[in-house]
């Protein structure tokens, strides 16, 4: 089976510092891949190159065999890459449903329509997406009133609006309570399985990572230092040294 995403020798320097240095990996259909590492290891840089916000110095990123490097973020989105943000980014002056409708309007290439009533377009599709993330009861609420966890779920619905092949989630559970984190990722995992979407996510919560990731990549100082399943990563001495520490602050490594 050919990879959905193939990253090859990706590199980026800022003022002589190698933020991302020769990173290569690939992702299969339906795979749930975690990218972890200390702050400043290059996770965000890596992510921003995948979704087109940063231009790499070298390397290639292919989605279903098609080169993404050099394309602006909106083109990459149209090719089937959805994304959620570390700090939620939604349209706060609109209702929950309107937020999803915006993505649908863009997907159907109606954004230059000057005459239709925006709120009357793609209502059913929007409601179906909200249903998927259990947000349909809140559809008419202003987005600005939502609790943080609900915003995260709304973002997921928005990201799924154009039926992407690949979902990029930057610290999807940042700022959420432990159980909400697990719930959100379980929800994501379910959708991933149902729709055959592939996911790359970065995360600091090791419990979330170990619970859901099919495979884990560890970045340090811009380089891939380890790759494997949860168990392999947990036992890797190098990863313990640079990132996981003694393991007293997260549950997965066996708090006494």
């Amino acid at each position: 089976m050919s990879a959905v995403l193939a990253v090859d020798a990706l590199a980026k320097s800022f003022g002589g510092v190698h933020a991302v240095d020769d990173v290569s990996f690939s992702l299969d259909k339906g795979e749930f891949l975690a990218l972890i590492g200390p702050n400043g290891a290059g996770k965000t840089t890596c992510f921003n190159m995948l979704n087109g916000y940063l231009k790499p110095d070298g390397g290639s990123v292919k989605l279903n065999g098609r080169e993404l490097i050099g394309l602006p973020p909106r083109r990459i989105w149209r090719l089937g890459v959805g994304r959620t943000f570390q700090i939620t980014a939604t349209f706060l002056s609109m209702t929950v449903r309107e937020n999803v409708q915006m993505a649908l309007i863009s997907h159907h290439r109606r954004i230059y329509d000057l005459f239709s009533r925006a709120t009357r377009l793609y209502v059913d599709e929007a409601m179906a997406l909200l249903d998927l993330v259990s947000m349909s009861e809140q559809a008419e609420r202003p987005c600005s009133e939502l609790a943080y966890g609900d915003l995260k779920r709304l973002e997921l619905a928005i990201a799924l609006a154009h039926e992407p092949d690949l979902l990029l989630m930057d610290e999807p559970t940042a700022g959420m309570a432990p159980s909400e984190r697990i719930a959100l990722m379980a929800l994501t995992a379910g959708i991933v399985e149902k729709r055959g979407v592939s996911v790359v996510f970065t995360e600091h919560d090791m419990d979330v990572v170990f619970a859901h990731a099919h495979r884990i990549l560890v970045l340090n100082r811009g380089q891939l230092i380890a790759e494997g399943t949860g168990d392999q990563i947990r036992k890797n001495p190098l990863v313990q040294e640079v990132y996981l520490g003694g393991g007293s602050v997260f549950e997965g490594a066996g708090h006494a």
Binding site: W77, R83, A89
Partner: peptide
């Protein structure tokens, strides 16, 4: 960024 991320 959200607008950009939905293809605008």
């Amino acid at each position: 960024i959200r607008a950009e991320a939905i293809g605008v």
